[in-house]
Amino acid sequence: MFQKMIVIIISTILVNNFVLAKFLGICPFLGVSRKTETALGMGMAVIFVMTLATAITWLLQVFILNRFHIEYMQTIAFILVIAALVQLVEMVIQKTSPLLYQALGIYLPLITTNCAVLGVAVLTIQNEYTFIETLVYSVGASIGFTLALILFAGIRERLSLADIPESLEGTAIALVTAGLLSLAFLGFAGLVK
């Protein structure tokens, strides 16, 4: 049991990193990676929302979709729940903690359309995880996302000072860098069977 948790954590953070190995959540990965500060803010928001959303979608799958045999409605139901959840969380945070709300800022609503969140929710069902395993999986996945985002932001901060050929400036060099980073993470393959 304990061993399996460790394997899940390591596998989601390093081996099957959601951004660099599964290529989910690429748009925030490219969009909010210009500064490490904002990358960290986005990462924290994702950790929070992803864990909460996956827990709720797992309950939804087991207690509603499976019970009424409408598993084929999974995607629609999950999107519905995630979108509503993010809205609710945003409202609660805005009221209870304006400081946190300002820190997360635009990133909270952005997560609504983050495919990594939906991806984790669907994958935990496909992998037939228990509730605890689901939680561990989603925490690991979001930490992996944050790690990739911060590493990438650090590299991009350096790149912004470098003398880059004009034709490669901006998104072009960012995509090349993302590819190299993804290759680097490929080195972790084989760490977990």
Binding site: L60, I64, F68, H69, Y72, M73, L80, Q87
Partner: peptide, 17 residues
């Protein structure tokens, strides 16, 4: 079942929000 459960879910979420 799909219509009722999803419709119900959407209704509850909308009400909650």
């Amino acid at each position: 079942a799909a219509v009722i459960s999803l419709g119900g879910l959407a209704f509850i979420l909308a009400l909650g929000l």
